[in-house]
């Protein structure tokens, strides 16, 4: 694997440079992740938004080195700064390497949409947290149990002393989500990867979990990569945002830049198509023409061009746009990004 030449400044926790993950399928090659670059600094919340199939989850799993068996690593680098300050090139580690096993759980935690993918149905919540704690820390059983109760308290689980001895199926959806967060936090990770953790929840429970994650992030100073397809959620939790489309990051910026000065036509169009609560009562929603192409037929040039209102024939359908960078750090992968400089979203 090629070591990226991009700098890796000291505040940097994680950096992806031109990451590619492909799936060879009968119908052709799926470039699920097709040159993704993003980074996250210590203590920061990075929101990743995009429609389904845009590659959000595959990218997250390759950070953990937990890609599906048939996935092909097709280049790029993923670097991570350990608690010790030492830099690891994750992209050259194997799924089962001792470094990865140590990183997972000890330095990088992960939570999912469906808590039962992380929780075992046949062990109590307490046993599962204790096991993780004892795997990474040299502590007694009693101390590990005390730590489990402390973690359940920290995630605001009701009746932690009782819940510690319960099985996941005794808990409600929101409580399972809290248990999974407690498990992910067991060893004070510096990075939490959260893949649609509130998508299956009611708005009220979602608000509780978002509030919890924000307060934990502030208290523990950990960074969060927060993956969602919900623009409301990302507006609520993220400091910076990366927007993905068909395996690529098409725009990145601070949360305010993305919502108030989007510089990519896809971001602009998506923001216009969401019905806002208390928003103007237009009878029709603005839409984006067509639908996300299937991954075997990714359009040439700019992959968004068949759906783009701004597309220019002879340019957009021929040449892939470069990453256009603005002084603020905002990036848009569009030939005409400069023209949206002062244009605010409607």
């Amino acid at each position: 694997m090629i070591q990226s030449n991009n700098p890796f400044p000291p505040e940097r926790l994680l950096q992806l440079d031109d990451v590619n993950v492909h799936f060879p399928m009968r119908e052709g090659l799926v470039k699920a992740v097709n040159g993704v670059s993003y980074h996250i600094n210590r203590g920061e919340v990075l929101g990743i938004v995009g429609e389904s199939g845009s590659g959000k989850s595959v990218t997250a799993r390759s950070i953990m080195r937990l890609q599906p068996k048939q996935a092909l690593d097709a280049g790029g680098s993923i670097r991570f700064r350990r608690k010790s300050g030492q830099e690891v090139l994750i992209s050259s580690e194997d799924r089962q390497s001792s470094t990865m096993r140590d990183l997972r759980g000890n330095e990088i935690g992960m939570i999912f949409q469906e808590p039962m993918t992380a929780l075992s149905p046949v062990h109590t919540i307490g046993t599962q947290i204790m096991r993780t704690v004892m795997l990474h820390r040299n502590v007694s059983k009693a101390d590990a149990r005390a730590r489990a109760i402390e973690l359940l308290t920290k995630v605001q689980m009701p009746r932690p002393n009782d819940i510690v001895d319960r099985y996941p199926h005794h808990l409600s959806g929101g409580m399972r989500q809290r248990a999974m967060i407690a498990l992910a936090l067991a060893c004070d990770p510096t990075l939490l990867i959260a893949d649609e953790p509130t998508t299956a929840l009611d708005v009220t429970t979602e608000a509780q979990i978002l509030h919890l994650l924000k307060s934990l992030q502030q208290e523990l100073g950990m960074a969060i990569v927060f993956i969602t397809h919900n623009f409301g959620v990302v507006a609520d939790i993220a400091d910076r945002v990366a927007v993905m489309y068909l395996g690529r990051v098409v725009e990145t910026g601070t949360v305010d830049e993305i919502f108030y000065e989007p510089k990519h036509p896809y971001t602009q169009a998506l923001l216009r198509s969401i019905p806002k609560l208390g928003g103007q009562k237009a009878r029709r929603l603005k839409t984006i023409a067509g639908s996300v192409p299937d991954p075997f037929n990714v359009p040439d040039g700019c992959s968004f061009h068949p759906r783009c209102m701004r597309a220019v024939g002879g340019v957009c359908n021929v040449t892939a746009p470069p990453e256009v960078r603005f002084p603020s750090g905002q990036m848009s992968r569009c030939h005409f990004a400069e023209e949206f400089r002062s244009e605010a979203a409607e």
């Binding site: 979602e206 608000a207 507006a235 609520d236 108030y260 806002k276």
Partner: peptide, 22 residues
Amino acid sequence: AVPQPDPRGNRERKRVALKGEI
């Protein structure tokens, strides 16, 4: 409880999370 696609608005709005569960 609804998070709005409006980061400034979310910061200004007092959003008291509803306690407990259904």
